[in-house]
Design a binder for these strands. Sequence first.
DNA 1: GGACAATACGGAGACAGTCTCCGTTTAGCA
DNA 2: TGCTAAACGGAGACTGTCTCCGTATTGTCC
Lengths: 184, 184
Amino acid sequence: MRADAKRNRDRIIESAREVFREQGYEASLDEVAKRAGVGAGTLYRHFPARENLVDAIMQTWVDRVAEATDKVLAFEGGERDLLLHWFETYVALISLHKGGPAKITCAMGDPDSPILSKCQVLSDASQRVADLLLERGALRADVDAVQICRLVGGVATVADDATLDASAVRPLLEVVADGLLVPV
Amino acid sequence: MRADAKRNRDRIIESAREVFREQGYEASLDEVAKRAGVGAGTLYRHFPARENLVDAIMQTWVDRVAEATDKVLAFEGGERDLLLHWFETYVALISLHKGGPAKITCAMGDPDSPILSKCQVLSDASQRVADLLLERGALRADVDAVQICRLVGGVATVADDATLDASAVRPLLEVVADGLLVPV
DNA sequence: GGACAATACGGAGACAGTCTCCGTTTAGCA
DNA sequence: TGCTAAACGGAGACTGTCTCCGTATTGTCC
């Protein structure tokens, strides 16, 4: 890649991060281009679809997911608390931007999504948590990580739409957790 | 209301029903106007926002919800089956159109939504089902109808986004049901 | 360091959708 | 029948997406 191309690409990503944070994922891409000081053509050449741009700005997010996952896996406490801790972490991670839960949860079920690889990190993390709980015999044997992602993603989507705060989300997550755990 | 106004209004609603069924809730409103044989101005005078049009279309849906609810309440069988039956009915009712689950679930949490009154019918129905189960001591005492709507709405939203079929949705609903019911 | 591809730029403009404004038409009443 | 309030409709302003293509820049090869 030519030096000027790389420079512009980086500036676009930086501007997008800024604009999306301010206005959400549906912000105008022309605005992003303008703020990056490039023409619309340049933006669309680098990122043919909005999702490609989203994908690019998600790299730092991926690192954050990995870090958070390790923290949850090191959690010392009961199985139910661990699962709930993961759920709350999960919701927090996908709710960083308005519209994030729907976008990410939707992408996980779409094999053609440009951000699929990024979302994979999340489902892998759920898998690791599920494996840990299965090992301890706390999780129902017939559930898989995909289902967990869908359930928690669904709760997060609704919470995002209705702008619920953590205290209103918690009981919903508890219901999901209780439905997933082996009855005591 | 003048006769011509009423006539146009009805034609717009009829066209919208048709267009939305074909193209989803995000279809062009100019297209709706065109198909109704009226100008864009006429459409926007009758329905200032897209949601107002959606609201008008939903009247027959409301009747359908009421009917389905009565059927579920008359269900003879175990509590878990009854709850699951309600969940599946609920998901079916809000998933009649692509994007429906998100739209309806979102509207339930938005006091300013033009379709709020229509959605009320659904939460009232959930309340009735919940009351029945509470009476029989099958439902956890600390859950309310709003939470049920959020949980099932979340599942339906995810299912809609990922275009899951009923067999993939069922296990998710079972998790929610098991989390809501009193452990045996 | 000059020349020449190859690569990239950028913005005008085509296109699509939303929504308004206002001159024209019509219903319904007296 | 004539009048007026109500309603119509579509041109066009506005916003956002995305493409096309003439222009400019980069990096390489001699």
